[in-house]
């Protein structure tokens, strides 16, 4: 029994990769219509390689060790996908009046939760009428 019963040291190797693709288009098919579409998709992965923190000194004198480091390298894993999409449709009734529909989507997929599962999807739809003067 005492204070420090040992220490462990190892080199940790962390790797992270992220890819994003995005695109958008604005179309004005006629005097009365405006259409806009935007999409972004991101996939990110990150994590530590397995490492060894054996605490030999401690284990030698305290076989029923209180700690289990065997899964520690997985705790900081990141594996997420994110999709953002929005579409806007505007119809001009005349020079001064218009109707607009705007739709947005954000879809986040947390494939390897750490503190808690942050997977979620939110959709927003806005319907408006406008008048310019």
């Amino acid at each position: 029994m005492g204070g420090q019963d040992g220490y462990s040291r190892d080199l940790l190797k962390y790797n992270e990769t992220s890819n994003s693709i995005l695109g958008g288009v604005k179309i004005r098919p006629g005097d009365h219509w405006d259409l806009g579409l935007n999409v972004t998709y991101t996939a990110s992965e990150g994590g530590l390689d397995p490492f060894d923190l054996p605490a030999d000194d401690y284990v030698a004198i305290t076989p029923p060790m209180s700690y289990d480091f065997s899964k520690s390298h997985t705790y900081s894993n990141i594996d997420v996908d994110r999709l953002n999409f929005d579409a806007m449709l505007k119809y001009k009734i005349n020079e001064d009046l218009w109707l607009r529909l705007w739709y947005q989507l954000a879809d986040f997929d947390d494939k390897d939760p750490y503190l808690y599962d942050t997977t979620g999807m939110v959709q927003w739809a806005t319907v408006t009428a406008g008048w310019s003067f």
Binding site: M1, G2, G3, Q4, D5, G6, Y7, S8, R9, D10, L11, L12, K13, Y14, N15, E16, T17, S18, N19, S20, I21, L22, G23, G24, V25, K26, I27, R28, P29, G46, F51, L53, A55, D57, Y58, T62, Y67, F69
Partner: peptide, 28 residues
């Protein structure tokens, strides 16, 4: 053209980090 425009893009990042960890093991 006069009635449309477009854009596309791609972004990539790769990161590797090596650092030592030293874990003290205490009793109590």
């Amino acid at each position: 053209g006069a009635n449309w425009d477009w854009y596309v893009g791609w972004a990539y990042q790769d990161l590797s980090l090596d650092a030592p960890a030293c874990i003290p093991v205490f009793d109590g």
